[in-house]
């Protein structure tokens, strides 16, 4: 090794691979969908409530998938509960300084809110006959409280994933404090795209659909900015991307950010273009996560 960019070069890659890439994808979608849904619920138009409902419906399955992925990624899934209870004393564990610990709790708490909102959405769409469940959504006071707390938890879940990577000693991951920001912001963008795609697919014509498009474009712009900041903050470590991973990152930027922005700018009101752009954002988001998770793996002392 001629020159070492960072002391992180001397560490071991964890086994985190495709399971984690998909976890980041689905976890991000869950958090982002909930975030958008609850935001619309809180401050949006009444006519956009079905979009919000869609968001709650998307969040739960995504959350379930991501939970299973996390579980399976443990070498000892039978001991997943060790994350919450000290196995030899049965006392609860909450280590605020360990992202894996607070993240696990965060997912649990977020799941609770997501579930409540999900029940409300079900009740509203009359799939559920529990009348009280409808009050779990705004505009009821309880619903507002749930939505506000749920938004906070969603933002937390979307952001902690990147913090988990930062609080390691791996090259790239721990060489910038911005990956959490990047993944969090990107989670919102891919979620908006997913909701857009569903809306377009179902032919929904609420004003909120346009808002989603606009929101997505702004967030993509923000994502790009954060990515530039990531690269700048990496300094010489950024040379890890002078590789196939870097090329793939470029693909992610082009497919998932530049081209969709350009398409939306050129034909802002075309439903097809909007849907195509949404698909590309999702693909780009997936590639971005793949690059972030895998780039460091080949770097071993």
């Amino acid at each position: 090794m001629s020159e070492i960019a960072s002391s992180t070069w001397f560490t071991t890659a964890p086994h985190w691979g495709w399971l984690i890439v998909f976890y980041y994808l689905f976890g991000g979608l869950a958090a982002g969908s909930y975030f958008i849904a609850a935001l619309i619920d809180l401050i949006g138009r009444r006519e956009d409530r079905p979009i919000a409902r869609m968001g709650y419906f998307v969040a739960i399955p995504c959350l379930m998938v991501s939970g299973v992925l996390l579980l399976v990624d443990l070498y000892r899934p039978d001991r997943f509960w060790h994350l919450f209870l000290q196995s030899n004393t049965m006392r609860p564990i909450f280590q605020y300084w360990a992202p894996m610990s607070i993240g696990s709790w965060g997912i649990i708490v977020f799941s609770l809110f997501a579930l409540l909102s999900f029940l409300a959405a079900l009740a509203e769409s009359r799939h559920l006959s529990w009348g009280w469940a409808g009050h779990l959504r705004p505009p009821s006071i309880v619903g507002r409280v749930i939505a506000v707390l749920g938004i906070l938890m969603a933002m937390y879940v979307a952001g902690y994933a990147g913090v988990l990577l930062a609080v390691t000693n791996r090259p790239l991951w721990s060489d910038t404090p911005l990956l959490g920001m990047l993944l969090g912001v990107s989670a919102m963008s891919i979620s908006a795209s997913l909701l857009l795609l569903i809306a377009r697919w179902r032919g929904l014509k609420f004003p909120g659909v346009r808002s989603l498009d606009r929101f997505d474009s702004w967030v993509i712009g923000l994502t790009l900015l954060v990515l530039v900041a990531v690269i700048v903050s990496l300094g010489s470590v950024a040379r890890v991307w002078l590789s196939l991973w870097g090329a793939l990152l470029l693909v992610a930027v082009l497919v998932g950010m530049i081209v969709p922005l350009f398409m939306r700018w050129r034909s802002a009101r075309s439903a097809q273009t909007s849907a195509l752009a949404a698909v590309m954002v999702l693909i780009g988001g997936f590639i971005l996560r793949t690059v972030i998770v895998f780039t460091q793996q080949g770097i071993q002392p």
Partner: peptide, 10 residues
């Protein structure tokens, strides 16, 4: 060797 990225953080 030691990186300037800390400056960025500051």
């Amino acid at each position: 060797m030691n990186l300037n990225r800390r400056d960025f953080l500051r």
